[in-house]
Amino acid sequence: MPTDNWTDSQPIVSIKDVHKSFGDLEVLKGISFDVMKGEVVCIIGPSGSGKSTLIRCINALNDIQKGSIKVEGIEVHDKHLNKLELRKKVGMVFQQYNLFPHKTALENVMMAPIKVLKESPAEVEAKARDLIEKVRLQGKENSYPGELSGGQQQRVAIARSLAMNPDIMLFDEVTAALDPETVKEVLVTIKDLAEDGMTCMLVTHEMGFAKEIADHIYFTDRGVIVEHGPPATFFEQAKDERTKEFLSQIL
């Protein structure tokens, strides 16, 4: 597998002219940007603008038709891509949590490292308990997903992803399905993670949170990046009409 001898000084995720269609519908029409290690990037935009599709392309859940996505030097747009190697580096959290309902919270966190990474169960359990504590769910280790609230499930999902020791975390509208009260507990967890230096890419509608946490914000509309910049300039001095309109509606 060509990794181009990737080093920390190069972008950890490098997206170049990505095109993606579902049948005749072109969802991404040439998207390019880089993410550096430790950076927190928020992608915002109206529904159907291709944000989620873009983030799903990064760990090859969706394939792309044209362009290049490199994760730590691994080309994702490649027929011979070793998806498993890629996905060990990239963790993902979904809008619908997607916990495994037949396993407890702790087992959800422990399963992948034991089955996929073949780590020793004792070590994994210790690590899993730490992670559960990190997402502030101590005491819920033996609860099944059905017994947990949406916010708690989402935090277990975050812990489950982290158990694989990923280098990058993708968050796909992780608070969109939650009650307003539980949104905060999930956002605090993500913030902790960002402060620990994890590279994070978030698709989100939480503008306040994006402003607080992001190093860089990308605004997408109809498959292209319309505007981007650090939060300060992005929110205060938006130049593009579509960005202004979107921000005026949402803020």
Binding site: L61, K83, L84, N98, F100, V116, S161, M164
Partner: peptide, 18 residues
């Protein structure tokens, strides 16, 4: 089984068999 279960397992580097 909801497709989200397949996606979650995929994103955790499970093979299809697993």
């Amino acid at each position: 089984v909801p497709s989200g279960q397949w996606e979650a397992a995929n994103s955790l580097a499970y093979t299809r068999q697993q």
